[in-house]
Design a protein around this nucleic acid. Structure first.
Length: 283
DNA sequence: GCCCAGGAGTGTG
DNA sequence: CACACTCATGGG
C-alpha cells in the first residue's frame, strides 16, 4: 500500500543517517526502510512529497510517519530563530531538511544506554541483536524493538553473551527499575524533572538523559553533549568546561530549540571528521 | 597492535 | 566543585 504525504523541508539521508536513530537502512536512490512501531515502512522522497510504502491494511502508518518525523515542527521558523547565532547562520541552509526524530521512549532509552562509549556501527549491531532475540516479528526477518515486557525476560548471563560489554548489566537493571507505566508518567513531567528522573536510572547520566529527553520525549530544548559536541563547542565557540557549564551555555545561546542546534553541530562535526563538507566555521 | 567510541559510576582531593 | 580511574569490546 502506497501513499504520499507532505513533510517539508525533509532530507531523509541527513535525518535518518546521522545517528539519532539506529534502525533505518538506506537502499539505493535515497530510499529508506525500517521498523516503525509494529510496522515495516519504506520511505521514498519525491520532489514535493514523501512516498510511503507499508503493508496493506496498515491504517496508522501515516500517523506513525508524521509523528516520527515530527511533521508539525516548523523547521523553517526554528532555523530562522537559530540563524540569529552567527556561527550557525553560516551553514544552516545546508541542513534545511535535517529534522529531529521522535522515537518511542522505551526504545530510545535502551538505545542510548547502549550507545555509551560505543561507535554507531556497533550501536546498530547491539540494537539489531536485541531486536532479533527479543523483538516481535513484524515482517519476514524483521523484528520490532523489544518491548519492556519481552526484554525483561532476558536473564543477566543471557544478556552478557550478546556482545554488549558492560552495558548488559545496565540493560538488565533498567528493566527492573522502570516499566511502561513509569515511562507514561514521565511524559507528563516538565523537562527539568524528567531529566532528574531519567538520571536516577542505571546507565543514565547527563548525556543519555538529554538524548532521551530530546529524541524520546520530544523536548526540543535538550542539548546532549558528547565528545563530538564538546569538540564543536571548543572549535566554534571556544567554550570548554563541565557538562553543566556547557549545557548552560547552550541553553542561553539556543534556547527552546537547542536540540536542533545540537543536531546541526553534531552532523557538521562528524562530516568534518570524515572528510566531508564543513558547514559551520568560527571565522 | 593501537586508538577511539553519541559515558556512567565511584572514589578522592 | 574537579579530576582520576575503571568498566568490556568492537570498529577503523
Amino acid at each position: 500500500m502506497k501513499f504520499g504525504m507532505r513533510i517539508a523541508p525533509l532530507n531523509l539521508d541527513q535525518t535518518l543517517g546521522c545517528g539519532q536513530t539506529f534502525r533505518w537502512r538506506r537502499l539505493a536512490d535515497g530510499v529508506w526502510e525500517g521498523p516503525l512501531g509494529n510496522q515495516f515502512v519504506r520511505m521514498n522522497p519525491r520532489k514535493s512529497t514523501l512516498e510511503v510504502d507499508v503493508a496493506p491494511g496498515s491504517k496508522s502508518a501515516r500517523r506513525l510517519v508524521r509523528n516520527h518525523l515530527r511533521a508539525s515542527d516548523d523547521v523553517a521558523s526554528i532555523q530562522k530563530r537559530l540563524s540569529e547565532d552567527k556561527v550557525l547562520s553560516l551553514g544552516i541552509t545546508r541542513v534545511r531538511g535535517l529534522r529531529i526524530v521522535k522515537m518511542d521512549e522505551w526504545e530510545c532509552l535502551v538505545s542510548f544506554v547502549l550507545a555509551t562509549y560505543a561507535n554507531i556501527p556497533r550501536i546498530t549491531r547491539m540494537i539489531e541483536t536485541l531486536s532479533s532475540r527479543y523483538g516481535e516479528e513484524i515482517v519476514d526477518g524483521v523484528r520490532a524493538f523489544p518491548t519492556h515486557e519481552s526484554l525483561s525476560e532476558a536473564s543477566k548471563p543471557e544478556l552478557a553473551r550478546l556482545g554488549l560489554g558492560y552495558r548488559a548489566d545496565y540493560v538488565h537493571s533498567l528493566c527492573e527499575r522502570i516499566d511502561d507505566r513509569a515511562i507514561s508518567h514521565m511524559t507528563r513531567l516538565n523537562s527539568d524533572s524528567l531529566r532528574e528522573k531519567l538520571k536516577e536510572l542505571p546507565g543514565v547520566g547527563d548525556k543519555v538523559a538529554d538524548c532521551v529527553s530530546l529524541f524520546g520525549f520530544g523536548r526540543l530544548e535538550a542539548f546532549p553533549i558528547d565528545v563530538w559536541i564538546e569538540r564543536a563547542l571548543t572549535r566554534l565557540y571556544h567554550k570548554r568546561g563541565s557538562y553543566a557549564k556547557l549545557r548552560a551555555f547552550a541553553s542561553e545561546r539556543f534556547g527552546e530549540y537547542a536540540g536542533y542546534a545540537q543536531e546541526y553541530l553534531y552532523y557538521n562535526e562528524r562530516m568534518r571528521a570524515s572528510g566531508g563538507a564543513c558547514l559551520f566555521s568560527d571565522e
